[in-house]
Amino acid sequence: MNRVVLATRNLHKVGELRAVLAPLLPDVEVLTVDAFEGVPEVAETEVTFAGNALLKAHAVARATGVPAIADDSGIAVDVLGGAPGIFSARWCGRHGDDAANLELLLAQIADVPAAHRGGAFVCAAALALPDGSSAVRHGELRGTITTAAAGGGGFGYDPVFTPAGADRTLAEHTAGEKNAISHRGAAFRALAPVVVDALAGRPIRDRSGSEREG
């Protein structure tokens, strides 16, 4: 059976990846790092989403001997020059404090008119093989930043982000609605053909489009 390991312990991400890969690889087995012993925690020390995704994917592929997929994502606000970006999860200075992150972001752009409150959720998804070859694909969801949080679903910045063409924040979307348009889903879908090639033993292409073998 084809196996890939997703560099996460988040079962929601695993389900999302399985759903993307299933039409192309019906027999694929998607594992989390919990299925292996001795997989190290990987600090996200790179300065881009792609860099962090590659860092994690390579580390997990080396530790498990199995093709590894990792992602890194965040919100990029136009008027802030793309910030918070890779610092999205710790924008307030503490990692994972969603409420404080939202409060700070809304305060920073409180006086910005609606026409200039654009932004995007951005995701980079990377595949790394035990031989060292790798590829990265990207996904993006454009939208606007609201003036106040709304909705009880989702997580992170979902309550203050309204996707383009929608009249509800992501936190007011169902899980199925969100998965259909999410930046992570788009990145996984873009990466899926590369995973197919890798598991079939064909060379994969890196983020620049050039072939990398070993």
Rank of each mutant, 00 (worst) to 15 (best):
A175H: 08
L25A: 07
G132A: 09
A70S: 15
F161T: 14
V195S: 09
A148F: 02
D72F: 05
G65I: 03
A22I: 11
A114E: 15
A180M: 00
V47M: 13
V33W: 12
A125F: 09
G139N: 06
A120S: 14
A99I: 13
A107F: 01
P193D: 05
D167F: 04
R137G: 05
G209K: 04
K56E: 11
A110E: 14
D34N: 11
E16R: 01
L191N: 04
V47A: 15
S134N: 06
A89W: 10
L106Q: 03
E44V: 10
T146M: 05
A114T: 14
D158H: 11
L31I: 06
A166W: 12
R18S: 09
A135D: 00
G153I: 04
D131C: 12
T169K: 08
K13I: 08
S182R: 13
L129W: 03
D158N: 06
A192K: 03
S210V: 08
F121Y: 15
V196P: 02
P113K: 00
H95L: 14
S208T: 14
V20K: 03
G15L: 00
A126R: 14
T174G: 07
V33H: 10
K13S: 11
A53N: 13
L24T: 07
S88A: 07
C92L: 06
V42R: 09
I145Y: 05
E211G: 00
F155A: 13
A59Y: 07
P159E: 01
L80E: 05
G74E: 03
I109G: 09
G214C: 00
G119W: 00
D98R: 02
V28A: 10
R3I: 09
D111C: 02
G176C: 00
Y157S: 01
G151V: 10
P113V: 01
L104D: 10
R142M: 06
F36H: 15
L6S: 08
P163G: 09
A190I: 09
G153S: 11
L127V: 10
L102Q: 04
T48F: 10
V30F: 10
A63P: 13
P159H: 07
A186C: 07
T45A: 14
L31A: 13
L170Y: 00
A70K: 02
L25T: 05
V4T: 06
A110M: 02
A126I: 03
L25Q: 09
L24W: 08
V39M: 15
